[in-house]
Design a protein around this nucleic acid. Sequence first.
DNA 1: TATGAATGAGTCTTCATTCAT
DNA 2: TATGAATGAAGACTCATTCAT
Lengths: 224, 224, 224, 224
Amino acid sequence: MSTPTSVNQQRPTRRVRRKAARPQEIVDAALQVFVAKGFAAARVDEIAQLAGVAKATVFVYFESKDALFKAVVRAKIVDQLTSFKAQAASHVGSTRELIVMALNDWWVRIGATDAGGISKLMMQEAKNFPELAAFYQAEVMVPATTLMSDILRRGVQRGELNDIDIPNTVMSIMASLLFLSMWSQSYGLDRPFCGSLISPDVFIDHQINLLFSGIESKGSVPCA
Amino acid sequence: MSTPTSVNQQRPTRRVRRKAARPQEIVDAALQVFVAKGFAAARVDEIAQLAGVAKATVFVYFESKDALFKAVVRAKIVDQLTSFKAQAASHVGSTRELIVMALNDWWVRIGATDAGGISKLMMQEAKNFPELAAFYQAEVMVPATTLMSDILRRGVQRGELNDIDIPNTVMSIMASLLFLSMWSQSYGLDRPFCGSLISPDVFIDHQINLLFSGIESKGSVPCA
Amino acid sequence: MSTPTSVNQQRPTRRVRRKAARPQEIVDAALQVFVAKGFAAARVDEIAQLAGVAKATVFVYFESKDALFKAVVRAKIVDQLTSFKAQAASHVGSTRELIVMALNDWWVRIGATDAGGISKLMMQEAKNFPELAAFYQAEVMVPATTLMSDILRRGVQRGELNDIDIPNTVMSIMASLLFLSMWSQSYGLDRPFCGSLISPDVFIDHQINLLFSGIESKGSVPCA
Amino acid sequence: MSTPTSVNQQRPTRRVRRKAARPQEIVDAALQVFVAKGFAAARVDEIAQLAGVAKATVFVYFESKDALFKAVVRAKIVDQLTSFKAQAASHVGSTRELIVMALNDWWVRIGATDAGGISKLMMQEAKNFPELAAFYQAEVMVPATTLMSDILRRGVQRGELNDIDIPNTVMSIMASLLFLSMWSQSYGLDRPFCGSLISPDVFIDHQINLLFSGIESKGSVPCA
DNA sequence: TATGAATGAGTCTTCATTCAT
DNA sequence: TATGAATGAAGACTCATTCAT
């Protein structure tokens, strides 16, 4: 509780209060603008404004627009990897449960957020930033696909899954999730698709069912 | 000195002969550059060079870079529609055969070509060209999804497929194909994925199998 | 004589009329501004204005401010070399007459003009443009000093001059002339020096007298 | 916990001890950077680093970069004046001996040091800092030329020298020395000139010989 | 006093677009 | 129609200078 006499104990000014947070704020703002506009069309001015700093301040923390872009990718990638690792660490229960959890987690933590825009960003700019694309492949795609293929392999070993083509199955899973994320970033999910609205939860659920069961009628099998 | 009457007798020069083809050539060049660099980073100069004309000539045919972009998308969408129609025309045989044919056709005619870059372009620029995005949705996505859902619906009616959630299944199919196309446009297919190379044909085949069969072991497990 | 009806035979517009002259005009303007302000403080905008073009036009002809600077030095150097060569070609008469002529010529054609500013420019920027400084040394200073030492050597061989230390004598001559040029560019010659005004002609004359009282062979020649 | 009374007992920290020297250190650093880069291209940051302080600290002592430049010139001019006075103080012996001593002294104390860069700096920036140029003329050039013309005049009065044109002779002497200093600052003296290396000592010696062969009274020689 | 942080005012440079032929 | 030339408008980046501590 502040006493009336503590007036001189004034709050640090805005400038100083946020000093330590600046780079993070700029990266956050940059992510938004890059995702919305693409790298080339994004203006540093807009990023700065969104971050609440002057344009020149951006260059205090990042050597160039390129460097800022790389920093955005790297920063958001680290978050992603952390999430992934946390998921991988504590998996109990059936492979299906694990996959259900992983995909939904991914969607909530990444796919549905600005961080999901990174995939789109990287695809857009892969050719303009080949070195960064390599970095992204090495640091994100390889760990992510490895994690997923480990999960599948374990499922096969446990007899929970057929002896499947793991790389293509991983590609399948990645494709549906990343596409969902990119689609929602670009077109939004409030647009009818095939006459109805796409719900991410339902789509992911459906995708998992498809994965696990197939859609083909199994005539002789009395199960259905 | 050439006589006044002889002028029109001469064969049209190469330039004149090609005159009618110019806009098309420019659009083709533009597609390549837009796909490679993205809209904002693409330079009209580069497009002109690729089309073999002067930069100013581009503006003879297209009012602005924006207009050129729209023309490219519209022109290439027409190409896509043409392809679609060819595919949709006469489908006989089982639903599975039909889908196999449709997806492989799509890959060969669109996904593997620059035209496939349109999807990527549209995703990139959807927010910057909303009216174009709407046009793309109406002219490409709606017909395509309708076609696919019709095929699926017919399969259900014929008893070839379970009573599935059609929109989400269509989304699934689209996702895998479009993602494959975008991935190959961005990163190429000569990069290992999960330790092996992705082959479009194999992936599509696998995707169809997945769709039709599922991966879950059905052997010993008592159905439920 | 233009007929009253020739109105449509309008003069080409300013833009077109001067097209071919543009690079030269820009180089001339740049020389003035560079000499007046130094390289770093010179603004491209000012150069453009002085040349009567838009700032962007400068970059049509020169890749960068650096390149423009180099072009200025090179262009003006060519002029200098041409002058030098013309002088060297046709020398008749005594060595003293030759030197009198050469120095006065140099002053009139170069030292007193903007081109004389090149020496100052190069000295200023030698460390910032080492490659250009090397070029300047090789293309200007070496030919110039070689020419002067050849003249002196010939004088020695002919018995007109004592057996002098040629390099230091050349340095002496260069120093006085270049310094005169730089001094007049920087401070002007309308400022009293030692209580009187420096007149270039008188100074050069004085310098030559000094030189020849010192180096002229006094052997057989009867004093006067 | 330090006792209140002990605080002032401690030896001043390094920072405090050097506090009084700061402005001087900054001026020294600034001289180097200004000489090396020119005024406009010199960055305050670099000066600060060289002086071992933060950039902002420079502005604690000098209102602006302009002010710093003026301070540098003024401070170094004082140094120059001090040197001049030391030289001028007690001259005995022949005029020639006096001049030999003066020129060599000037070279060692000024011409060969950073202080010699002041001349170059002033020539560069004379037009941008006219009031400073006037100050320089008044405080350095006038005393220096006066000193030299006094020496020469005394020599004439004593019959050691002919009745020469003093201002032009002074200009001659100044030109060769200042040029030598500027040349060495810009291009260095390790570069061949006319096929051999310039040695300042030899050049100055040569210059003096030249001067005296020309101006020295030749009493016994019947020629004059 | 000394400084890390921040920024306003530029400067070079790019590029879509216009213009005159 | 086609284009070489020119440019206005903008954007990335720099840097002297200020500010709060």
